[in-house]
Design a binder for these strands. Structure first.
Lengths: 138, 138
DNA sequence: ATTCTTGCAAACGGTTTGCACATAC
DNA sequence: GTATGTGCAAACCGTTTGCAAGAAT
């Protein structure tokens, strides 16, 4: 994996540093979906000199390059909706516009996959991309 | 609507104040999914004395009571995932644990409903609720 | 040699908190 | 009269930014 990831970094024009390898490795070896702080604590065990700022910058770069996924938040600030019925949301990655999507064909009653003690309170389906306006200006 | 909402507030043991009515009304009359700040600016036109803190507290109360919906963020802090393949996420509302859900029956290739100039980059399906541990302690 | 990255510390900004006063019940 | 809510300001905390020193190419 190490070798492959070095290649991947180079393919994306990213320099190879031990910090980046350590950060990716920490993320790769867990299913916890850790926060930046948590990854920082993990990596610090081996490299006490690393800084939290580097972890943030690195995760941002990886995320931009599509090497990792930022699970949340979907927008920088909280947004509210008076409509509490389940429906789809589209979030523009550029202007942060949120639009309700109607699709009668889409079944919001997604069956909870093997519930196994997990109690589902609500579900949210989000589409991310670019709205017509922001699409033009790219 | 005003009358019904007053009833709804009382049903949830919430006192009726003109601030709460104004905040709900501002949210109810838009499809913009506004932020707290944006709602504050709107309400301020009619009630210049209202404070941003009150807007935050009120939205939190409404959200807890299920009168409105907090669209995002799903967790307070950003969380990362080395797995970039589309998959379902479960987020525990209590401990913030995130779990990947596998469901072969669920089609992640959700068709984009009437795309109309919206360019979809990615989609995310989130389930919120309580994990087995936190469920017990409730 | 040049460009990119790191570490540090300060700044930023959305959100929360504490508390005295005011309002709803 | 009591419990609840408001307004204000300060605190909080996750994240970003600026910059000089260091490392990668």
């Amino acid at each position: 994996m190490e070798k492959d990831f070095i290649t991947t970094l180079r393919e994306h024009g990213l320099q190879v540093t031990y910090q980046r390898l350590a950060i990716y490795q920490a993320l790769f070896h867990t299913k916890e979906h850790p926060s930046a702080e948590s990854i920082y604590q993990q990596v610090r065990k081996r490299f006490p000199m690393i800084s939290l700022g580097t972890v943030y910058k690195t995760l941002e770069r990886f995320s931009e390059a599509g090497l990792i996924q930022k699970v949340s938040p979907m927008t920088e600030v909280a947004r509210y909706d008076a409509d509490v019925t389940p429906h789809l949301h589209f979030v523009c990655l550029h202007c942060q516009m949120i639009k309700d999507l109607e699709d009668p064909a889409f079944d919001m009653n997604i069956p909870m996959p093997n519930t196994n003690g997990f109690q589902i309170v609500r579900r949210q389906v989000l589409f991310q991309g670019y709205c017509p306006n922001c699409r033009k200006r790219q």
